[in-house]
Amino acid sequence: MSLPVKERFYPKLLMLCALTSILVVVLVGFFVFLQGYPLLAKKGFFSFLFGMNWLPGEGTFGILPMVAGTLAVTFGSLLIGVPLGVTTAIFLAEYAPKTIAFWTRRSVELLAGIPSVVYGLFGMTIIVPAVRFAAVNWFGDLLSPEMKTGFGIVAASLVLAIMILPTIVNISEDALRAVPHEYKEGSYALGVPRWQTIFYNQLPAARAGITAGIVLGMGRAIGETMAILMVAGNAPALPRSIFSPVRTLSGNIGLEMAYASGDHAQALFATGVVLFLVIMLLNGFALLVAGKGVRAR
């Protein structure tokens, strides 16, 4: 007895849908590499990556300042976002009464839904002036003029820290909840109080998942474009202080792709190649190594 057509044919169609993600990832990688490769071959990958100067008009393409800028704002955002996010996750998993946990979780969800240009606008009109005030009044003597605009690493880190909070909170909370009950009960049975139990028992047990959350948050920070463009100042020069204006890798593409052509456009695609590789490595690490069991709920 053979199955009717729909029983055999439709599931195959659904399989094609499921394979679309693979196709898209392969296509994205292929086309970005295809466009970026000629320039990388001509200039050399390492002189592109470690070149100090970005002067598209003169055909000089070095992205070290953007690499430094990306690293600076990413670590800045993690410095603020990780303690706040993990502590909020501890609150949700261990301390919060049911209704308060519910509302906190809804707030975090909403935070994830706000468009990045809205964060950018908030950053431009609230955070940048605040940073400018601090730079001028508290460190005025130490800083050169371009560092007193408010646009720069500090402002970008603050905005990014808010934007990566949802990723860190959600994944860390899942990780904390996935810790077997027996661990906590064992600790309580020994008379260990709540915070010590969390600190010495729950957190180490959830380490892998929390690491995955942090790495995925890092990926979001590196990939973010719009909000950063609006608050980072976008100067393609190596930062000399935490108030320096910087340009990130993603910002570099967003800023110049609109009018680039020829070698310049290829150099922007090559910037995309670097971004693509970094993100694939980070996410591969998070999903395969650190994140074992993170998604198993």
């Binding site: 693979i22 994205v28 970005v32 990939g223 922007l268 695609f269 995309g272 971004l275 980070l282 996410n283």
Partner: peptide, 23 residues
């Protein structure tokens, strides 16, 4: 399939934009 779906979620939107432009 799951791995690639998660990987796709992580690709920065500006990189997808570059692909969209080229393709």
């Amino acid at each position: 399939i799951r791995f690639f779906t998660d990987a796709l979620a992580g690709i920065p939107s500006i990189v997808i934009g570059l692909f969209g432009f080229a393709f």
